[in-house]
């Protein structure tokens, strides 16, 4: 019963991640892609934790989720810092 529930929840979150993937592929600007990747990262953390409970190895998977949260945060900061310096191609935003 609980397992089915966790599986359903994880699948729903995966479907949501696919929706965000549309934003990553479609753009239009690089900032949209960064936001999309960040969102997928956050959803992945939730999926990892749920997977841990599905497999009965929650104590192992929560560590992975914590690490993933750290990397997701640092990655978003590094990317936004980089494009803050470099500047974004605004014309690609106009041609939506």
């Amino acid at each position: 019963m609980a397992d089915t529930f966790f599986l359903g929840a994880a699948l729903a979150i995966l479907a949501a991640a696919m929706l965000s993937l549309y934003r990553v592929i479609r753009g239009p600007s690089i900032i949209d892609r960064i936001v999309g990747v960040n969102v997928i990262g956050t959803k992945t953390i939730a999926v990892i934790v749920l997977t841990g409970h599905l497999f009965g190895r929650a104590e192992l998977f929560i560590d992975i989720a914590l690490l993933y949260a750290l990397i997701n945060f640092i990655g978003a900061l590094a990317l936004s810092r980089y494009f803050e310096r470099k500047g974004v191609d605004v014309t690609s935003e106009r041609a939506r």
Partner: peptide, 15 residues
Amino acid sequence: TATHAIARAARQSGV
């Protein structure tokens, strides 16, 4: 914090 950093990058680059 991450959202704010990305928003700041967008604003600084003139979006």
